[in-house]
Simulated scan of single mutants.
Amino acid sequence: MNDAGSAVLRLSGVSKSYNKGLPGEIHVLRGVDLTLAPGEVTALVAPSGAGKSTLLHIAGLLDTPDAGIVEIAGEDMTGRPDRRRTAVRREAVGFVYQFHHLLPEFTAVENIVLPQLANGATRAEAEDRARALLDSVGLAPRATHRPAALSGGEQQRVAFCRAMANAPRLLLADEPTGNLDPETSGRVFDALMTLVRETGLSALIATHNLELAARMDRQLHLDQGNLREG
C-alpha cells in the first residue's frame, strides 16, 4: 500500500457494459469518477438495476471494468495479478451485503474469527478482536450463538463485525439494511455507523433509504450509468 494520506478509493473513468458488441448491449457504468477520502462515509443512492452492485464489485476488486482505473489506498490495481488483487481485497476491503451470508455451522464469534485466521492472525488474537467487535455492537451476550438463533438484525450486526475483522481501510456495503423492517433497520444502521466512526475507515454504502443516506457525509446518485453528487 502507498501513502496512507492518499485517497482510500479512487475510480477514474470507470466504464462497464454487458453483452458487449451485441444488439442488447447494456452500458451500466459510463466513465465514473469517484474519490473517497480517509474517514469519509458516502451514500450511493440508485434504483434497482442501476448498476450500484456492479460499481461496488469493481471498487472492491471482485470485478474488473472495461475501461478506467481503480486505486485502493493509492495503489493502481489495473492489470495486477489475481494474487495481488486477492491480497488487497482481504487486507484492505470489507464487504457487507443485504443478506448476511454467515456460515450457519459456526457461532457468531467463530464467523468473525475465520477471516482473521485466513489473514494470518493467531486464534487468541482473532477471538479477542471478534469479542471486542461484538461488544461494540451490543452482541457480547450472543457471541456463542449460531446464526439460526439470532434475529435478522443481530445476524446483520455480526456480518458488520466480520467485515471489520481484518481492520480494512475501506468498507463497501450493498443495501446492508434492505432486508430489515424500518425499526430494526435504524438500529442496525446505528451500529454500523458506530463501527465506522470508531475505526475511522472510509465507507461507500449503497441504499434506497433516503433518510439513512442523509445521515452520511455526502450522497452520490447513480443514474443511467452516470454518477453525480447531491
Rank of each mutant, 00 (worst) to 15 (best):
L29P: 07
R146Y: 04
E71S: 13
N209F: 03
G225M: 06
V88F: 06
D76C: 13
I58A: 10
V70M: 05
L34T: 00
G51A: 14
D223V: 15
L210W: 03
N119D: 13
E198C: 03
R146S: 06
P168D: 05
V28G: 01
H208G: 11
I58Y: 07
D128R: 12
L222K: 02
L195A: 01
D223C: 09
P168V: 04
I69K: 10
A203C: 03
L133N: 01
M193I: 12
T177R: 02
L220M: 09
G186S: 14
A165K: 10
R142V: 08
V14F: 05
V32P: 06
R85A: 15
G68M: 10
N166F: 06
D82G: 14
S6K: 13
Q219N: 10
P47A: 14
V137P: 00
R123L: 11
P81C: 08
V70H: 02
N209W: 02
E110T: 08
K52C: 00
G138A: 09
L55T: 09
A92G: 01
D82V: 06
H100W: 15
E229S: 12
H101M: 03
R197C: 00
A140F: 05
L195D: 01
M193G: 01
M1V: 14
G39C: 11
E40D: 11
R84C: 04
R90A: 15
H57T: 07
S15N: 12
P168N: 10
V8Q: 04
A7T: 10
V28K: 02
F106R: 15
N2W: 00
R197Y: 00
G138M: 09
A121I: 00
L9T: 06
D82W: 03
A203S: 07
L180C: 04
D66I: 09
L56F: 11
I205D: 07
I205C: 13
A121D: 15
A206V: 11
V158T: 08
F95Q: 09
T107C: 03
M77R: 05
A203Q: 00
N209E: 15
Q116G: 14
A159L: 13
G24D: 13
T207F: 07
A148R: 15
A140G: 13
A163Q: 01
P115W: 03
V41T: 14
G200A: 00
D174V: 11
L201A: 04
N209Y: 05
L61N: 09
G51Q: 09
V93P: 00
S6V: 08
V45E: 02
P47S: 14
P65H: 04
L195R: 02
G39Y: 07
A50R: 03
D33C: 12
T107V: 02
H57S: 09
A59F: 12
R142E: 10
V45A: 05
G51W: 08
G5E: 06
T194L: 04
H27G: 03
E198H: 10
F95T: 06
A165P: 13
G94S: 03
G74T: 10
G153S: 15
A92Y: 06
R83T: 11
Y18L: 13
L220S: 01
E127D: 14
V41E: 05
R90K: 13
